[in-house]
């Protein structure tokens, strides 16, 4: 801030002060009009010269003190503060940008990790499913083999039972025919007849 006044203004001030002082001193040199009674103090011309003289000195001193010491210093302090605040704000903005970058990177890393985790989970699910499938298949195979074996056993048992039934049937048929006709059929005829009946059923 350009608080320092130009040299011209300062010289002008000094000149004005001198002018005011001299002009009023000339006026004050003439004796007061009323004379006998003391005038109302603010209008007492006798005091004008002294008042102006000391006003010029004190106001001049004040102006000098303010314009050369106090105001430039205050301006410098305020400038410095404005700069410090600006610098801090810049730093804060930079920090914030960095923090945002970090947050974005973190998000990306998190997303990737999640994807990886999903892949791993899927793979492990797949392998375990495969393994359990394989185990199931073997178990099923074993069961099927056992089943086939059992079926085979049942079939042989059934076949032997059937032959027993046939021989029993032919024996019964021979006995019945013998009883009815009194004539015993040959074993082959009886067994053929039984076979025919069995084939029909």
């Amino acid at each position: 801030m350009p608080v320092r006044s130009s040299r011209f203004v300062r010289q002008g001030l000094a000149g004005v002060a001198a002018f005011v002082l001299v002009a009023s001193a000339a006026g004050a040199a003439t004796p007061p009009l009323s004379g006998e009674k003391a005038a109302f103090p603010p209008f007492d011309v006798a005091t004008f010269a002294g008042q102006l003289f000391w006003l010029a000195i004190s106001f001049g001193a004040l102006y000098w003190l303010m314009s050369t010491i106090a105001l430039p210093r205050m301006g410098a302090i305020l400038d410095e503060r404005a700069q410090a605040i600006g610098r801090d704000l810049d730093n804060a903005a930079r920090m914030q940008a960095k923090a945002e970058e970090t947050a974005i990177a973190y998000e990306a890393a998190l997303a990737e990790a999640r994807k990886n985790a999903q892949g791993i989970a899927q793979a492990s699910r797949d392998t375990s499913a495969k393994a359990s499938d394989a185990r199931r298949l073997t178990v099923e195979g074993e069961l099927a083999a056992k089943l086939a074996q059992a079926e085979a056993t049942i079939a042989t048992t059934k076949a032997s039972a059937m032959t027993n039934v046939r021989s029993l049937g032919s024996d019964v048929a021979v006995a019945i025919v013998t009883k009815l006709t009194g004539q015993a059929p040959s074993a082959t005829e009886a067994s053929e007849a039984v076979d025919q009946v069995l084939a029909r059923s």
């Binding site: 004050a28 040199a29 005091t47 002294g50 008042q51 003289f53 000391w54 006003l55 004040l62 003190l65």
Partner: peptide, 20 residues
């Protein structure tokens, strides 16, 4: 010229001193 240092002058100086 009466340029005496008066009570007015004193308070002018005091004013400058307070501001300073």
């Amino acid at each position: 010229l009466d340029l005496s240092f008066s009570n007015a002058s004193l308070f002018m100086a005091l004013t400058v001193a307070v501001i300073s």
